[in-house]
């Protein structure tokens, strides 16, 4: 299991979801992906995409300008 990072800042939904989807396609089951976004819409869209596709949202963090979502790839 390894930790990967994805910078999806300054893109608007659905681009953060598309970037997450494409990145995860190349990861191994159980890997963690930390996605950083500036569009608060990602807070609802990335977890929705994960629910549909069986991945797990391990953590979401939010501050003034950025949201961070940690996803574990489905095994």
């Amino acid at each position: 299991m390894s930790l990967h990072k994805l910078d999806a800042r300054h893109t608007l939904c659905p681009m953060p979801v598309i970037k997450t989807q494409n990145k995860i396609a190349g990861l191994e089951p159980g890997d963690l992906l930390e996605v950083t976004c500036t569009d608060p819409g990602a807070l609802s869209d990335i977890p929705a995409w994960c629910r549909i596709n069986g991945h797990t949202v391990k953590e979401t963090r939010e501050n003034d300008d950025e949201v961070v979502i940690v996803v574990q790839v489905a095994s």
């Binding site: 939904c13 819409g41 609802s44 929705a48």
Partner: peptide, 12 residues
């Protein structure tokens, strides 16, 4: 307003 992507919502 709640934010949602309607395509994702439909799939769900």
């Amino acid at each position: 307003k709640p934010k949602r992507n309607n395509a994702l919502w439909s799939a769900e």
